[in-house]
Amino acid sequence: MKTTLSYKILIWTGIAVLLVWSLGPIYWTIASSVTPSADFSTRPINFFPQHFTLDHYSRLLGVNIARIGGVEVFKQFRAALINSVVTSVAATLLCVAISAFGAYAFTRLQFPGRKALFIIVVATLAIPAYAVLIPLYQIMIKLHLVDTYVGVALIYVSAFLPLSLWLLKSVFEALPIALEEAAQLDGAGRLYIFFNIVLPLAGPGLTAAAILTFLGAWGQYLVPLIFSPQATKPLTVLIPEFVTKNFIDYGLITASGSIAIIIPALVVIFLNRYLVSGLLAGSVK
């Protein structure tokens, strides 16, 4: 069908609207984060920052803080940033490792209860987190794991393991078995084959599983709100705390929001292919 000019214009107008809808709020956040607080009170508002400042970021990161004054939040913010990175990375590594071992066992090894176990584990995808939250809280109190990295990371692992396992099992199943059989004939052991043949081939699948787990852990709110109240408080719990009843510091909110956006944005920009493949595998439950 010949594409007329008016049809092309129609399509690209639609795409433009879609882009403004998706990126507009993010643009506005970044623009506000470099706007001096004084400019927030100008009316009508400016859609582009009239003055540029990094003061909000300085307050958050504790750089040159004496010059600006105000509430000292940088210690909390730095700790929260570290907490977010530590818990998300730990949960991702642990989750992908455990599910890779499991997925290999489920695809290549025979053991009793194999099918039933897989179905039961994957079925928990349908169980929402809050259905287990309260007993989990009691367990974590008993184990003294509330407000520890281990406790929160373990909860993330249990939450994201089924999806990761499901994804990796389908990846391993699609790998050519001939290579593994050849290695077996040459006398290679199961674990040797797993580490030297299966894992390198499954790279894209492992990446997809890691991305989904990482983004999921990075964005968690309800779980750390309950399980990481103080010492291990992540960014997602800290940022809404800048919203207090009397005063909302929009400079801090938009600057901290921009920082929390950076990592997911990098993932989407550079690893989008893996992300999309993971999303598709995960959504077809």
């Binding site: 506000s32 983004l215 964005g219 940022i239 929001g257 929390a260 997911p264 989407v268």
Partner: peptide, 17 residues
């Protein structure tokens, strides 16, 4: 895809603003 990848609370404070 970007809005989906961001933490839900960060989206919420963006829209609060």
């Amino acid at each position: 895809i970007l809005p989906w990848a961001l933490p839900g609370v960060v989206n919420s404070v963006i829209w609060l603003w």
